[in-house]
Amino acid sequence: MDTAPPGQAPFIVDPYPTLARIRANGPVSILHSDEGLPMWVIARYRDVRAALADPRFGQDVRRAQQLADDRVAGTTLGSDMVHMLNSDPPDHTRLRRLIHGFFTAKRVAAMRPMVERTTAMLLDGLDGRDTVDLVTDFAFPLPMLIICELIGFPPEDRLAYREWSTAVLTHSDDAEAFGRAMRDLTDYITGLLRQRRDDPRDDILTVLLAARDQGHLTDDEIVGMVFLLLIGGHETTVNLLGTATLALLRHPDQYRWLREHPAALPVAVDEFLRYESPVSMATLRFTTAPVDVDGVEIPAGELVLVSLGGANRDPDRFPDADRLVLDRADPGHLAFGHGLHRCLGAFLGKLEGEVALGQLLARHPGMTLAGTEDTLRWRNTIMLRGLESLPVALHG
């Protein structure tokens, strides 16, 4: 795309030319935030994979914020809420162990009928309509309904969850909106926890409450855990479904191939994840000791961005990396991360992608884009890669 829609930065619309320049520049580059905060960026596949598994790259949000404050006073990196994604062992190990059982391959496989029913119900709701917003009407409610079921959240409040999630992820530079969303979400979670104490169920909220009563969790950690699961449990799948559908509409040859080979959906979903990584930039890290990255040393105490989107488009790892190839049959992408912090919900995210795209294409094989590409708006964050909306004509 040559130009960005009004109000959309070119990097948000298409980050890949910039990421290619960063890769070509060397093993690491130093970029500066709007506030002047220096950050080292790693974008080559080999180096990204190594960094994700290297314990010298810490993720403790409190330490990262301290490092930022030492360089540029008043800089806010985001929420200071502690959860698995922004903590290090032993806290990370303890927190992850508590809910790991909800996301094992066996547990997720048993969820397939529920995912299929939810998908079919949402698609039934689109019957009789010529044009829909695939994000609002399908890609968002599907994973939200499923994660609400797992956590124990009332699904009827899902629009509020989406508003809070959007504010937290895309308005961290707006202190008022960010703070309001965090307060509202925290108050909401606290209220549900009070209710669950009197009404235990087979859900994550009940498990977390039991862990707190046994001294394994604090109240703040429960809120952080639920916050992470709610946002992480739907944002990535929303992005996957939206960008995968757009990629098919942009590549009619691949669209045709997938319709002719529906059994190849698991392989195709891996390619969608590689081609447009739902999480484009991994959670901010910092060096706890000097780290050599392919001959370049990052000193201790430096903030580091690790680009999953850049790694997954690295031509040294994936031939013809900027091309969508649904029969690539190479599951080596880093869309779910790697190492200690690899996405806990990877099995669930893949299942949701396979079921949702399979049913969508089976019901609406002639689907086309409604409108022009230059009107599409992308989520305004470098961390995520996703569409705000995707208008499609279901019947071509």
Rank of each mutant, 00 (worst) to 15 (best):
M114I: 06
L77I: 15
A73V: 11
P27H: 06
P10D: 10
R94P: 02
P113C: 15
P15E: 13
R49Y: 03
M84T: 02
L31V: 14
P17L: 02
G7D: 08
P15G: 11
H100D: 02
N25D: 15
W40Q: 10
K106C: 01
A24I: 08
G36C: 07
D34A: 15
I30C: 15
R71N: 01
V13A: 14
L98V: 04
D54N: 14
P55A: 13
I22W: 00
G101F: 01
S87W: 04
V28G: 05
E116G: 00
R46Q: 15
L98M: 08
L85I: 10
G101K: 02
P27M: 00
Q8W: 04
H83P: 11
D60Q: 09
T75E: 14
R117C: 04
F11W: 06
A51T: 06
P15I: 12
V13M: 08
V48R: 01
D14A: 09
F102Q: 14
L85P: 03
A110G: 15
L77P: 11
R71D: 04
L52R: 05
P6G: 01
V41T: 10
S29N: 08
R107P: 06
T76Q: 13
H100I: 09
P89W: 09
L98R: 01
D2F: 11
Q65W: 10
R97T: 10
L67F: 06
D14C: 10
F11L: 09
M114Y: 00
D70Y: 04
W40M: 11
D34H: 15
Q59W: 11
I12R: 01
A24P: 08
D34T: 14
R21Y: 03
E35R: 15
T118Y: 07
R94N: 05
R107C: 00
D34V: 12
M111H: 09
L19A: 10
F102T: 09
I12N: 02
D47M: 01
V82L: 14
V41K: 01
D70Q: 14
R94G: 07
N25V: 05
T3C: 13
V108N: 00
E35V: 06
R97Q: 12
R117S: 07
A43I: 10
P38E: 02
Q65A: 12
R63L: 09
D60G: 04
M84H: 00
M111F: 09
I22Q: 03
R97F: 10
R49S: 13
V41G: 02
L77R: 08
H92K: 11
H32A: 06
D47P: 05
L67R: 01
P5V: 12
N86P: 02
I30R: 15
Y16R: 08
P17N: 11
K106S: 07
R71G: 04
G36W: 05
